[in-house]
Amino acid sequence: MVRNLFAALAGAIFGLGLLLSGMTDTLKVQGWLDLFGAWDPTLAFVMAGAILPMAIAWQMTRVRGGSVLGTAFPTKPDVRLDPNLIFGSILFGAGWALAGLCPGPAMATATFSGAGGLLFLLAMVAGMVAAPALKTRIARLGAAA
């Protein structure tokens, strides 16, 4: 129960932060990616603001044995840069530019972005359903190469 409460709290603060930062506005996100047009650097300020408390939090995980609710802290993943990481990020970046939405803002705006916003979420979930099979194939190709 407490775990769900804090999860909801984190989700709420995340959503409000996205709204306040302007990252729920697809024009601002597309503006960040539009290096050859009217470039909007706002996203860099959002990233800087977000990384600051997170960097402190990661430092705190070093001196604490585990999280407040007892779950072990996530271990640092393998440093290997696999084909799925790079290929997936390329696909994601392209989709991010097309609509100006990434998963966080797409969900934060779900109740007020109309049919288009819901259609985006539906398509995103469909992509997530398709991903695991593709992931195995790419990993196999990467191992063979």
Binding site: R3, F6, A7, L9, A10, G11, A12, I13, F14, L16, G17, L18, L19, L20, S21, G22, M23, T42, L43, F45, V46, M47, A48, G49, A50, I51, L52, P53, M54, I56, A57, W58, M60, T61, R64, G66, S67, V68, L69, G70, T71, A72, F73, P74
Partner: peptide, 20 residues
């Protein structure tokens, strides 16, 4: 943007430190 970013980072910090 920076202020909203701080909130996003705070949310991430809570989720990490409290929920792990």
């Amino acid at each position: 943007g920076f202020a909203g970013g701080l909130m996003i980072g705070l949310a991430g910090a809570i989720f990490l430190l409290v929920n792990g």
